[in-house]
Design a protein around this nucleic acid. Structure first.
Length: 322
DNA sequence: TCCCAGGATCAAG
DNA sequence: CTTGATCATGGG
């Protein structure tokens, strides 16, 4: 029918009519709230690599229009038939960008002015919660994120990929590294792993978790099938996994929207905003978010966190709503 | 030099 | 069931 080769770039569009509500791609990607390494910028687009049915695909996204009427142009390259790439990539993007999430229901549910969260809804309209697609990768990255900055754990994750992940070369001759397999990390030398990735004391739990996955003792796919509380408790048994990392994995890695990771920022925001600056424990803050926002706890956390960090206006807001 | 960053862990109180 | 010290590492 055509002379198109499997290696030729494939381009298609996702329009707002196919998505469940508004989308702000830039805000979503730059929120950096993920359990997998943040997407890279390439020109005005965002770029990521993903293995789709076993084949590495490199894709670029750019949004045009408004957060309500828009189209997202997707360009993909990799060794896969064009129509198959499109089909797989659409499915993939639906998941990782949360395009099925009913944002309008979320907004309607918490737009009451008495609800402090309501103030974040308009400025962050279209912000969606990104999901990972690889449970192992999500767990390792969540462990890496403990007691460090988002920027640093992303750097560490990229180094882990570069030194331990499979190297892939795309038809456009660009070279990237995938996230490593559990076997590779399990066999790594701890000292060398630390030296090459700067992951510090996190190397030990990273290797231990990788080993128990390799041995079959730990099956993440089974854990995420359980009810929230059960899955949470089981994750706490893993080395390097505490309440925050467990929630991070469940929310961003497994897409469990009822979980709400409480880091230093959310801890601060929840205490100031919902407890009149009374210092509450982290567990108390997490429980509060789950009880108040129910199935939208993860989204509430996302909006509070992003608004506070990126607008740097939260002090003002919390004073007005205190 | 000290403090902090998407905390976890262990020993004490 | 809470609190405090310790754990690597790089940035401010």
């Amino acid at each position: 029918l055509s002379n198109a080769q499997p290696c030729d770039p494939v381009t298609f569009e996702i329009s707002s009519e196919e998505v469940n509500g508004p989308l702000n791609l830039e805000e979503t990607v730059l929120s950096a709230q993920t359990s997998e390494p943040e997407w890279l910028r390439e020109g005005h687009s965002f770029m990521d690599i993903e293995e789709l049915i076993g084949t590495p695909i490199k894709y670029l996204l750019i949004q045009s229009g408004t957060v309500d009427r828009y189209k997202v142009t997707v360009t993909a390259i990799g060794s896969m038939r064009g129509n198959l790439v499109e089909k797989e990539l659409r499915r993939h993007l639906d998941l990782v960008l949360g395009l099925k999430d009913d944002l309008r229901a979320f907004y309607d549910g918490f737009s009451n002015p008495d609800e402090p969260l309501s103030r974040t809804l308009k400025p962050l309209r279209g912000l969606r919660l990104m999901r990972g697609t690889n449970l192992y990768e999500s767990l390792i990255c969540s462990i890496l994120s403990q007691n460090t900055s988002a920027r640093l754990w992303n750097r560490t994750a990229r180094l882990l990929m570069r030194h331990y992940g499979r190297k892939v070369t795309f038809p456009d001759h660009t070279v990237y590294h995938l996230f490593p397999e559990p076997q590779t990390v399990a066999r790594a030398d701890a000292a060398e792993l630390r030296r090459k990735t700067s992951m510090g004391y996190r190397a030990k739990p990273v290797i231990e978790v990788s080993k128990s996955i390799m041995s079959g003792e730990l099956v993440l796919e089974e854990i995420v099938k359980r009810p929230y509380r059960e899955a949470f408790e089981e994750l706490l048994e893993l080395p390097g996994v505490g309440p925050k990392v467990a929630d991070c994995f469940l929310l961003y890695g497994a897409g469990r929207l009822e979980s709400a990771p409480v880091d230093v920022w959310i801890h601060r925001i929840v205490s100031e905003t919902y407890f009149r600056s009374r210092k509450v424990s982290r567990l108390e803050a997490a429980r509060f978010l789950r009880e108040r926002f129910g199935p939208w706890a993860g989204y509430a956390q996302l909006y509070l966190f992003d608004y506070a960090r990126r607008s740097s206006a939260w002090v003002h807001v919390s004073e007005k709503t205190a």
